[in-house]
Each structure stands twice: as structure tokens, then as C-alpha cells.
Computed example of a mutant assay.
Amino acid sequence: MKQSLKVLLLISLLLTFSHSSFSSNQPIKLVGDSAWEPFYGPNLPEGGFVMALVAAAFAESDSKVKIAYEPWSRALLSTLKGSHDAVVGAYFTEERANQFHYSEAFYTNEIILLSLKSKKVKYNGNLKSLTAYRIGIVQDNAYTPQFDNADYLHKEVVVHPIQNIQKLFLGRIDILVETKAIKAITLYLTNKHYPKRLPEIQILQPPLSQNELHLIVAKNNPHAQLILTHFNRGLKKILKSGQYKQILRRFLVSS
């Protein structure tokens, strides 16, 4: 019996050492979509407000992060293969939940429909009112289950969100589906793309949905629960301390 207790104690100590070593010495390898500005991106200050929030949460547990960017589909696949520890900014889907553990939600994002005022799009909140229009979407993005499964809609797929904006101004689509970080996306469009044409764009009401952003970790990652525990604990701390809101204000983003 004493021998069994010694073995259990040794195992416990080894696990504790392993977890401590992982959290303090090895950076947590994060990956994000290579085309998701203004939420995050390699050319944004601090990687964008989403990465800044995630890094701040991990910092509360003395965990350093290493950030990479890949096309969304590749990011998911490479994380499942072990190249990365976690994917940043995922919406919840039942399909993903079969392969990934989800963190607590750290930001709520609206999914909106954008069009040109000159198009005079008639939308009443019912997706069937959009059957006459060409709708631009981004490859492998999850919007809402109802929209994603609406095969009766005319959807045109692009790889990068800016392609949809270009197609909208060229008259090749009538509507684009986009995420809304309110001031951040307005500044992004103003400063980087078509600033003179920005007044032509209108947001159709009501929004498609409000989606929560999560950190996701592959279920086959042996450190999955530890990573999520550190992140969730850190998230609560930055929310309580006010650091969370400070980061959003720094990036001119609404919570």
C-alpha cells in the first residue's frame, strides 16, 4: 500500500513538473487565419486586437505565445496534426466540436450583410428574401447554420475578404457577408481600401447573427486542458482588472 502511494505521489510530481515546464518554458503556438484583418493579422500592431486579447490572457499565467498565420483550412488541419497548439478566433460548430476543445468565448462578433445603397437591396431578416441577389462569402468561413445550409442562395466564394469588397464595387456581387468590429472595420476600410467610396456602403438590418469567438485546441493535444485552463483563467483576470476593455479601447473596438 505504501509503495502504491509512493508511485502515485511520484506520478503526481512528474505531472506537475511537466505542466509547469510546458507553461513557463515553452511558448504556446497559436495560429490564426492569414486573411482576417482587422481582427488580426501579421501586419497589424500587436497582431490586431484579437491576438492582443489572447496574448494578455495567457500572460496572466506567465505563458508566452508564438503566433503564426495560415489560410483558415490549413490552420485547422495543421493544428490537428500537431504543428500548432491552438487556433484563434473560431466560431462554434458541431463539426469542429468533434475534433477540438473550445475555450470560453472571449469576444462576440456580429455577422452582417453589406451592400451598396444604389443596389436598393430588399431584406427583411428572412434569408429567402435574398434569393434574387449574388452574395459574396469567404472560403471555409462559418457564418450561421441557417445561412451556411441555405443552398437556395446564390453564393460566390473568394479566398480573401478584400476580394468581395472589390467585387461589390465592380458590380459582380450584390451583397457581401462580413464581420463587424464597428469602429475597427470602418477605420480599416477607410485607411486601406476605397476610402472615397465608403459612404456608398450600407449595412443591411437585421444582422445575420452574433457569433462568439473562441480559442480551440485539438482533442489529440496532450496539453489541451492545460492550455484551455490557462487561457480561461487569464481571460477572467483581464476582464476583472479592466485590461480587456483597455485593449479594445486601444484598438478603437467596441466590446
Rank of each mutant, 00 (worst) to 15 (best):
K117F: 00
F100K: 08
K128V: 01
S83Q: 15
H101Y: 14
F100Y: 11
T108Y: 13
S103A: 11
K128R: 08
S78H: 07
Y102H: 09
R74M: 04
H101K: 14
P71I: 12
Y102V: 03
L113I: 10
L77N: 13
L114Q: 07
G82W: 14
G89N: 02
E104F: 06
S83F: 13
S103T: 00
L114P: 01
D85F: 10
L77E: 13
T93H: 04
T79G: 13
Y107N: 07
N98A: 15
S118Y: 08
K119M: 04
N124S: 11
H101Q: 02
K81F: 10
N124F: 03
H84F: 15
K117I: 03
L80A: 15
R96M: 02
Y102E: 09
S118M: 01
I111Y: 01
W72T: 02
S103G: 04
E95K: 14
K119D: 09
I112D: 01
Y123K: 00
E110R: 11
F100T: 05
E104R: 07
G89L: 10
R74N: 03
L114S: 05
A68Q: 06
L80Y: 10
Y69M: 05
H84R: 12
L114K: 06
A97T: 06
E94K: 15
E95S: 15
Q99P: 00
S78R: 14
E70V: 01
K122G: 00
F92L: 13
G82T: 11
V88S: 14
A105K: 11
P71Q: 08
N126V: 07
F100W: 03
A86V: 04
F106V: 01
E95P: 05
S83Y: 15
G82Y: 11
A90M: 13
A86Y: 06
P71R: 09
G89W: 05
Q99Y: 15
A86R: 10
G89Q: 06
R96H: 04
V87G: 08
V88L: 11
E104Y: 01
G82Q: 12
K128W: 01
Y107S: 11
V121N: 01
F100L: 09
Q99F: 15
K122M: 09
N124Q: 12
P71H: 08
K81A: 09
V121S: 04
